[in-house]
Design a protein around this nucleic acid. Structure first.
Ligand SMILES: [Mn+2]
Ligand SMILES: [Mn+2]
Ligand SMILES: [Zn+2]
Ligand SMILES: [Zn+2]
Lengths: 144, 144
DNA sequence: TATAATAATGATAATAATAATCAAAATCAA
DNA sequence: TTGATTTTGATTATTATTATCATTATTATA
């Protein structure tokens, strides 16, 4: 199973931080890895609850935080104010094309843009940390 | 006064929408136009309250909404979750370099990047609506 | 200018997303 | 197996923003 790597990363992180590995955390990681990318906390909660009806909302948020801390998950703040989470392990940096109708996310990387962004940092004397670029439009399907 | 144009835009909008022009709205517009760019609702509230101590928070939010609707103001959602507002009238589209230490905003436009973004929209069959690009780093002053 | 219709205001309550608290339950090292 | 420590779920708190509503202000008109 491909997920072996991710599970190990999570377990190693828990061990390193002297945290314990609960059933709930296993289940949330599993759902997160199985799910489509760019999921909200609420969507994750909805899926986990099917298998684990007693799960509490707080546990979802706590575990998402752990997943972000150990490098498996990246938080995205979208223009409409929603927060979404995507897989980070094994995924190189990328930006997003987002359909404002159907909310579809297309992952894109343009090496030319990346290079020009570095030049912008340099031109204004900034030490680069990260960037974020989102292109909002209407996708092919939604154009009808 | 340069602000004449902006005031007219606001007044025309209010008239067009059958809204009334209150002292509070005048004052909030005035503070917004006088202030530095990229202000939060709370910062705006703090400044307005000095001249107009009885102002209510709700009026700030209501008026910001009007300013956005009439094209004088643009809402920005920053990566850390805060919402900021900047002048829109007379300002061409631009993106931002943001210092993660001192929160300084530098406005930038790179025509090459803009062109490549259009190409990305086209390549993936998206009808472009808008985009947003933020470059986060540490500015010259904060590097010490 | 006085009036009357309409809209705006400020106080307050409501929302929604997320974080903090805490007693009970689960994990795990010895 | 035990016992120290952590986690959980329920609940409350927090924060930013919006909705409600009685009172007040604006504005068109007589
Ligand atoms: Mn992505
Ligand atoms: Mn700006
Ligand atoms: Zn679409
Ligand atoms: Zn700085």
């Amino acid at each position: 199973m491909i997920r072996k790597n991710e599970e190990k990363i999570f377990e190693d992180y828990l061990a390193r931080e002297n945290l314990k590995h609960s059933e709930q955390r296993k289940e949330i990681l599993d759902v997160f890895l199985n799910t489509d990318k760019h999921i909200t906390a609420d969507e994750l909660y909805g899926i986990v609850r099917k298998k684990y009806p007693s799960i509490g909302y707080a546990t979802i948020y706590r575990t998402i935080r752990l997943l972000c801390e150990c490098g498996l998950c990246l938080e995205l703040k979208i223009d409409d104010g929603t927060t979404r989470y995507e897989h980070l392990y094994g995924h190189r940096h990328h930006d997003h094309l987002i359909c404002v109708k159907c909310n579809r996310f297309v992952e894109v990387v343009d090496p030319d843009i990346e290079r020009l962004q570095e030049k912008l940092f340099k031109r204004f004397g900034f030490a680069p940390q990260r960037h974020r670029m989102e292109l909002y439009g209407i996708c092919k399907k939604c154009k009808k």
